Simulated scan of single mutants.
Amino acid sequence: MSDLRFVDLCAGAGGLALGLEHAGFEPVLLLDKKSVSCDTLRWNRPRWQVLEADLLDFVPTRYQETYDVDLLSAGLPRVKSSATAARAETEAELRLLEATVYLAHAVQPRALLIENVPGLVNAPDFQPIRDFIRKELDHLGYRFRWFVLNAADFGVPQDRKQGVLVALKERYFDAFRPPRPTVRDHLSVGQALFPSMALGGWRDADRWAAQALTVAPTLVGGSDGRGGADLGPTGTKRAWARMGVDGGTVADGVPGPDFVWAPETGRHGMVRITTDQAAILQGFPSDWAFAGKKTARYRQIGHASPPPVARALGLAIRAALGAPGAPAPDYTSGP
Rank of each mutant, 00 (worst) to 15 (best):
G266T: 12
L97I: 09
P329S: 12
G190W: 03
V309S: 06
V215N: 06
V156S: 05
L55T: 11
K237W: 04
A123W: 01
P257C: 08
Q158I: 05
H268E: 12
G19I: 01
L213F: 11
D138Q: 13
H268C: 14
L120I: 03
V166L: 07
A312F: 10
E91W: 10
L112P: 05
D185R: 10
K34D: 15
T61R: 13
Q282R: 11
E89V: 09
Q158W: 02
Q211L: 09
G14P: 05
Q191W: 06
G12V: 02
D330C: 09
F154M: 07
L51I: 01
G222Y: 06
L231V: 06
L120H: 13
G201S: 00
L231A: 07
D54H: 14
V148R: 14
V189R: 01
D68N: 11
V101P: 05
L120G: 09
Q49K: 10
S188R: 11
T90F: 05
F126V: 03
T40W: 13
V121C: 05
A323Q: 13
Q127S: 15
G292M: 15
R272W: 04
D57V: 11
W240C: 05
N116T: 05
G19F: 05
T249E: 10
A251Q: 02
G283V: 12
G75C: 08
A262I: 11
Q108W: 08
G228T: 15
M197E: 04
D224C: 06
G24Q: 02
I273W: 09
Y331E: 12
V309D: 02
F147D: 00
T249K: 06
P233E: 06
V7E: 11
G163N: 08
R318K: 14
R203Q: 14
D131G: 15
E89D: 13
K293A: 12
G12Y: 08
V189W: 02
W43P: 09
L41A: 09
A216C: 11
A53N: 11
V28C: 08
G269H: 04
S35V: 14
V220M: 05
T234Y: 08
A316K: 11
F6M: 10
M1D: 04
P335A: 14
E26Q: 13
